[in-house]
Design a binder for these strands. Structure first.
Lengths: 292, 292
DNA sequence: CCTGTTGTTTTCAAATTGGAAACAGTTTTA
DNA sequence: TAAAACTGTTTCCAATTTGAAAACAACAGG
């Protein structure tokens, strides 16, 4: 038995309350979880959990062990960070979460530079636009674009600000009615981004309810559709900058009032923040300053 | 790599200053020690020891890690013995309060099993349906059936849920008017349980005021009267289950809405709850889970 | 330049592990 | 009431990892 892993599994299990979910979250089979936790119980000679087919609940012994196990794992992590931070060049693994669109544009260039600067740091980058809990999923760092301040459980550092543009292909604009006011959008094919907070109301001036033939959870996908001349989209600046410069896309309603978002780097407010995380954030801040 | 064992080996190694001696002391080969410690260093990305052919000495990082590692191992050991002490064949007396009806049915079987499992625990069981103050009377544990959450001065663990049935003897039903609706009960001989919260209003559908020739503070007594064909009673499921199965009693108005009660195990929210109490509750929970 | 001792590496049989599938329960659904 | 859908556990076997011995490399001391 790998006792340390068994303990980690037990803690996870206590949090999620289900063998199946732990297995899913760790991309392994539930038999592994079951066997390892059973072995831990056997090793201790104590039942830590009551199992039923519907849920798992801690025994009294399990509750006591959980509390101590958490502490021990935290201390071990701190010990590891301690020795790693003594090294001159930071090393270790950084698990990072970022929005898809941002990840494959700005951040891909940024992290290429980062890897050059810190060749001993392993990056584990998860791109996705679903809401994730950084702590629960073990992320060291996350990127969020927001117009409001952020969750207090995290430390957030503003990196840069960016806006949106309403974009269309020149071809589309030729073939359709001209757009001179925000209200004209109502009669156009405006694409909707599924995760967009305003849903089908674009925050132009006082807001305009739009409609169209495409609703998709990827701005990249949407951008391709726009470039093909199929419709209009509200696209983050960093995504359309190139296409606007080259003339492949044209900005519509450049003078309409549009919101500005701030891009934050977030990290869990732990007791011991590993040096590599802080170092990475310093790098981020410097990098984005240089870009402007 | 078994990290925990690697850490243990590292600590031993730092103490003995020699791979060979660690191997000897643990009755294993030195290759194991060498490989495992190397793997730990690799995992951390940090050299913990300077090796020469003559002796082993800690690096700066190694010293820091050693100190933390010792602490972690000590805490782990403490956690292990903590749960094991909880488990240790507990002894002593458990003073327990339970409702009469429950005590002479379910609980009598449950505690028979418990006594087999923990032969060193003395049980002092007080059955009774009066309201008692557990703390004042020195009870370690009490059982309460309730539809609402419980007094905050106690810690309560839900054990099982059960319902009620309106029961009568077949003989009684033959000799009296048929009962097809809740309201029909008004004209029947419905027995009243003195401690019942609703007094003479049975909580069927929207409630029905009943009356009859027996009012008694023992459901067992009442059950005997019902079996004799003298009248109807509102009886907890666990009490009439057998009689219903054997046909000795028949359920009346099975489709009427009836309340469901949760059976709780209660113990005073003291600072130090004796291990035997916690142990007993774990046993209870497991037992009732198994029953279902 | 041996000799004895150190830690590391190699080797390969033996033990352990991990995932799929079968299984035994239970709850939910139709 | 039967079927479907989950639960956690167990079984099975290929794949990996482990461990002890032996070979090896490095070095101190005679």
């Amino acid at each position: 038995m790998n006792k340390l892993r068994a303990i980690q599994l037990f803690v996870r299990l206590a949090e999620l309350g289900s063998f199946t979910r732990v297995a899913e979250q760790l991309n392994t089979s539930k038999s592994v979880i079951s066997k390892e936790v059973s072995r831990l119980e056997e090793d201790l000679g104590v039942r830590l959990l009551h199992r039923t087919t519907r849920n798992v609940q801690l025994t009294h012994a399990g509750e006591g062990y959980l509390q101590r196990a958490r502490e021990i794992l935290a201390q071990l992590e701190a010990a590891d960070s301690f020795v790693q931070d003594l090294q001159q060049a930071p090393r270790g693994r950084l698990k990072i979460n970022a929005p898809m669109a941002l990840g494959i544009t700005e951040l891909s260039r940024m992290f290429a530079d980062f890897m050059r600067a810190y060749p001993d740091i392993e990056l584990d980058i998860h791109l996705g636009d679903e809401d994730v809990d950084l702590v629960e999923q073990g992320f060291d760092l996350g990127f969020r674009a927001s117009s409001q301040p952020l969750d207090l459980a995290y430390v957030g550092r503003p990196l840069t600000r960016f806006g949106y543009h309403v974009c269309a292909a020149p071809q589309y604009l030729q073939q359709h009615e001209p757009i001179v006011s925000v209200d004209d959008l109502r009669s156009h094919n405006c694409f909707e981004y599924s995760y967009f907070k305003g849903k089908n109301v674009w925050p132009l001036d006082d807001g305009v309810r739009i409609g169209g033939t495409l609703r998709v959870n990827s701005v990249i996908f949407m951008l391709t559709a726009i470039k093909s001349g199929l419709g209009l989209g509200l696209v983050p600046e960093f995504l359309c900058r190139e296409a606007l410069a080259s003339g492949e896309l044209v900005e519509v309603l450049p003078d309409a009032r549009k919101p500005e978002l701030t891009l934050y780097a977030l990290y869990p407010a732990r007791h011991f923040v590993p040096a590599r995380v802080l170092q990475c954030i310093d790098f981020l801040e410097a990098w984005f300053l240089r870009q402007r």
